[in-house]
Amino acid sequence: MTMTSHSSSRAYPRTVANAQGDIALRLMTADDAEAVLDFARALPAHDLLFLPRDITQPRVMDAWVRAIERGDIDSVLAVRGGIVLGCAAVIRDPHSWSGHVAELRVLAAPALRGSGLGQQLAREACALAIERGHDKLVAQMTVDQRGAIAVFQALGFRPEALLGKHVRDQKGQAHDLVVLSHDVAQFEAQMRAYGMTEALGA
C-alpha cells in the first residue's frame, strides 16, 4: 500500500537512485522496530551521541514507535533487501511553545557513507518538515561529525549554538554539540527570488 504524508507530493514507498544501488524509502511502522534496532546496534557508538536517548535499547525503540503512532514523529527508512541502511526522523512537540520548530535526525550505515544517502535522507526530512508547516528546522551533532554538518549546511542550515561538553560517551569523555538551524520562510523567499521554488523537493 502506498502511504502519503498530508501533502500529496511525498509518496511512500518509493525507490531512489543511490551510488551503491537503488534504495527504497518508506515510512517506519511498529513492524520495523526490530530491524531498526539491528541497524542502530551496528552503528559506531559515536554516531549516536547527538541523540537524547540510546536507540539501541528496546524500551527507547518502543517509545519511538509510540511517538510515530501519536503523530509526534515522522520517520523514513532507507531499505534494501529488507535491511535498514539509514533513517531520518522529523520530531515535533505540538503542545510546546516551540510547536513551530521541528528537529531533524539522520543516520546512515557506515558502508553507505559517501554514497549520498545521508544527503538524500536529510533532504527528505527537510521536505517532510516543511510540508508539515514548520517554520524553523534544527539539527544537532557533535562538532567532529564534519560530514553530517556539511550535509545540513548544503541544505541551507547554519550554526546557531555550541553546547560545550554536552554529552558523554561510554568512556566518560565529554563532547561538544553544535546546533544548526534553518529558517524556512527566509529560505523560501530566497528561492523564490532566484526562481527555485522546489529546491528541497526530492
Score class of each variant (00 low, 15 high):
Gly147Glu: 15
Leu162Ile: 15
Met141Trp: 01
Gly133Asp: 10
Lys165Leu: 13
Arg146Leu: 13
Ala122Pro: 00
Val138Glu: 11
Gln119Ile: 00
Ala129Gln: 09
Leu155Glu: 01
Ile149Lys: 13
Ile130Phe: 02
Pro159Asp: 04
Gly147Gln: 13
Gln140Glu: 12
His166Val: 03
Leu163Gln: 14
His134Thr: 07
Arg132Phe: 09
Ala139Gln: 05
Cys126Asn: 08
Pro159Trp: 06
His134Trp: 09
Asp144Pro: 08
Arg132Trp: 12
Gln120Cys: 11
Leu155Pro: 05
Gln120Asn: 07
Gly156Lys: 01
Gln153Glu: 12
Ala122His: 00
Gly164Asn: 15
Leu117Asn: 06
Cys126Trp: 02
Gln145Asp: 06
Leu121Ile: 07
Ala148Glu: 09
Val151Ser: 08
Asp144Met: 09
Ala161Asn: 07
Arg158Ala: 15
Ala150Ile: 04
Arg158Ser: 13
Gln119His: 07
Leu162Ala: 12
Cys126Thr: 08
Ile149Phe: 14
Phe152Ala: 03
Ala161Asp: 04
Ala161Phe: 06
Leu162Thr: 15
Gln120Phe: 10
Ala154Asn: 03
Leu128Ala: 12
Leu163Ser: 09
Gly133Gln: 04
Glu131Trp: 08
Gln120Ser: 09
Asp135Lys: 15
Lys165Asn: 14
Ala161Ser: 10
His166Trp: 10
Leu162Pro: 08
Leu162Gln: 12
Arg146Asn: 09
Ala148Met: 11
Gln119Pro: 01
Gly156Val: 00
Cys126Asp: 05
Thr142Asp: 00
Ala122Val: 02
Cys126His: 05
Val138Met: 13
Leu137Cys: 02
Ala127Val: 01
Pro159Asn: 05
Asp144His: 11
Ala129His: 11
Val138Thr: 09
Arg158Gln: 14
Gly133Lys: 01
Glu131Met: 10
Arg146Glu: 13
Phe152Ile: 04
Val143Pro: 01
Ala154Lys: 04
Ala150Ser: 10
Gln145Ile: 05
Glu124Met: 15
Pro159Ala: 03
Cys126Ile: 05
Gln120Ala: 13
Ile130His: 00
Ala127Tyr: 04
Gly156Pro: 00
Gly118Cys: 11
Arg132Ile: 08
Arg158Thr: 12
Val151Phe: 08
Ala125Asp: 15
Gly156Ile: 00
Gly118Val: 06
Gln153Ala: 08
Phe157Ile: 03
Leu128Arg: 14
Ala148Phe: 07
Gln145Ala: 12
Gly164Glu: 10
Ala161Val: 02
Ala154Gln: 01
Leu117Ser: 06
Gly164Lys: 14
Ala129Phe: 07
Arg123His: 02
Leu155Val: 03
Val151Thr: 04
Gln145His: 14
Gln119Ser: 09
Glu124Phe: 10
His134Pro: 10
Gly118Gln: 03
Phe152Asp: 02
Leu128Asn: 12
Glu160Met: 05
Asp135Ser: 15
Ala150Cys: 09
His166Ile: 05
Ala129Trp: 08
Gln119Tyr: 03
Ala148Leu: 10
Gln120Met: 13
Thr142Tyr: 00
Leu128Ser: 14
Gln140Arg: 12
Ala125Arg: 11
Gly133Phe: 01
Pro159Gly: 06
Ile149Asp: 12
His134Cys: 14
Gln145Trp: 03
Leu117Ile: 07
Glu160Asn: 02
Leu162Trp: 11
Asp135Met: 13
Pro159Ile: 04
Ile149Ala: 10
Glu160Asp: 05
Arg123Thr: 08
Gly133Asn: 01
Ala125Asn: 11
Leu128Lys: 07
Ala127Gln: 01
Lys136Ser: 02
Ile149Asn: 11
Phe152Thr: 04
Leu162Phe: 13
Ala161Gln: 06
Ala161Tyr: 06
